[in-house]
Design a protein around this nucleic acid. Sequence first.
DNA 1: GAAGAGAGCGCC
DNA 2: AAAGGGCGCTCTCTTC
Length: 707
Amino acid sequence: MNSDIRNIGQSSSILQLSPAWEATLDRAKIKRDEAASAAARFLPKDRSLFLNRVRFVNDRNSARGMADFLEQRRIVLVGMDTEFRYSEEGVHTWTASGRDVEWCDPRSVEPLMLTLAAVELRESSDTEYDVYRFAVDLRQSAVLDSVQHVLRMPVPFIGHFLQAELICLWKLGLAEPNELWDTWAAEKAIQLGCTMGTLDRKNQATEGDDKDLCETYGPMSLLGTCDRYGIRYPFAGVKTELQASFLNMDENAEFSPDQIEYAVADAVAAAGLYLPQVRRTAKCGLLRHLQSIEMSWAVTNARMHWNGVRVAPQRIEQLREACQRHVAELGAQLADEGLHKVNSFPQMKALMERHGLLELFRSGDSYSFDDKHLETYEDRHPSIRKVRLVRKVQRLLSDQLLNGSLIGKDGRLHPEHRQLQAASGRNSMRHPNIGGIGQALRPLVVPDEGYGIGEVDLVQIEIGIAAAVYNDPDLIRMFNGRDVYVAMAKRFYETDRNGSTAGLSDSEFKKKHSELRAKMKVFTLGIIYGMSPHGIALQLGITHKEAMQEHERFMSMFPTLNDALLEAAALGAIRGYADTNTGLKRHRQRTGRTTTKERNWLVNTPVQGSAANVFKDAGNRLDKRLQHYEARLIMPLHDSFIFEAPLGKLSQVSKVVAEVMRSTVQEHFPKLAPRTDINIEHPSCWNKDGTLRSLRLWMANPELARL
DNA sequence: GAAGAGAGCGCC
DNA sequence: AAAGGGCGCTCTCTTC
């Protein structure tokens, strides 16, 4: 029958078959071919063809073969790695430890190769397994459908610093796997606190009791990590060389066997790290934290990096011109007085000495010309004000943000969001640190056409977290009320004022007794940050003795908290680490007696770190939830998320963000009733509390632009 | 000339 | 003796 139809079709020139008929016949043929190849796909594949060799995938058939084979096997995990390069030159940002630190536009990434190491446990053994290795040429778009199939497999995909892999996948329009494990992030968590930050290097140098120092954990690189787990890495000596070979190769050149073997080795190493690392993190009490928060956060971070932040080029240009104008005018005036560098200590000293003002700036046995001192004595001489202004403007002028070099192909900044960079577990941001831009300058950040920018923050969350992790019922109750500082002040001063404040509403109190409320704020931050009576006295302008008495009385309002703080410092010191609500730990770098600094962070880390955990957890949910609204997170800022949403959905999205943030806090700390602030007043740019004019004010006169 | 230390200030 | 937790980034001065 079929052959009859074919014959008819072949002789259609004679029979004058209609085009519609021809199309029908063609479709039938395609369907039949597909059915035949589908049937072939469903035959078990010979696994010996995939064992002990690398399968190179560079067209539709080989890709489909890979996907079918992997779905036929009982795969339990897949190691992955990508090779890529950037079409745009990197931007030199600065030099650190002899190495140039470069920023590369993630939007200019050129994915070259994806390597996979799929692991299948042997039925006969719990410890032996087979690895199927693939190298996929990502330059061939025909392979992508099947690659996506593989990535959808419900098994963990393992990679070392997944940001790179994710950027490659997203560039190709592929969705990331559902379950990911970043071996780099796991190592970061294990060593948290052990790395030598600047501050700790300083302490070490001055104190010099090296015998009490804990060993450092070692490098976070794939090689360093393999070393720690006793995993053989075949290309140890030539890794840099082979990595570079991808950067220099011709666009369409074939990959060399060396390149393929090397790229596959990285995927195999990642796969090999998984089980030992899961075991180690379980031993360290980190497994739950990593699985429930950190691994998803790696994806959330990568997506914020990929999404980026739009800035308005003309506003940047205007700001730069304004800055240059200010520096030129004021700088010339100062130069006339012999001050050529406003940051030069000797020149400042000479200038102030000439005016007979030097002693005003005494600080210990030296002098300090920091902004605080300058501000205090601004009215003593006109050049002091000028110095302050020039410093402010110069700092901005030399900011990475203003020279425009960090703007990607898509017209957006793509700051790097560094996971677990802070010893407390917080993120940090760089290239550029757009979150650290002055609040007045936030309107430089604008949304895409048709979108609006919103921000939601958790109000005074660290106080709530402090109350919850240290489980103080009174502080919890006050946090859950309308204004925590007013609640404190009412209680603190009720004996002083014979109940006269008790009848006032919170807002009345806030108005009438703002200075009392401010004092409570100082004491509270004092608790969270470990401020001493000395510091409190300085802050409040009272004597050391008064500060001590007041602080004691303040702490007596929270006896449970008081005990818990002492415990945290003392027990943490013995234990060797401070911990957070989901098990993430910050380790001490030494044993024995604690320094003041250590006692402070032993108390603070459970608060700051737990707040960071909850915040990341909320961010992970938002990363998923916002997709439905075509909205996206663009920046995390410790207790607030900045996001971009279609204008018509902005209000709805902001409610979702706020709800998710609050409910996540409550899932971690059921006793808390957190509040959120939504700022969508002016969606046309990022701003602080709806203050739009700040940028223009700054340009006119930086002095006036106080928020 | 490069690298590190320190001061200083921006953000939470 | 130090004296408020966590960062990024720039500038100046010192040292090798």
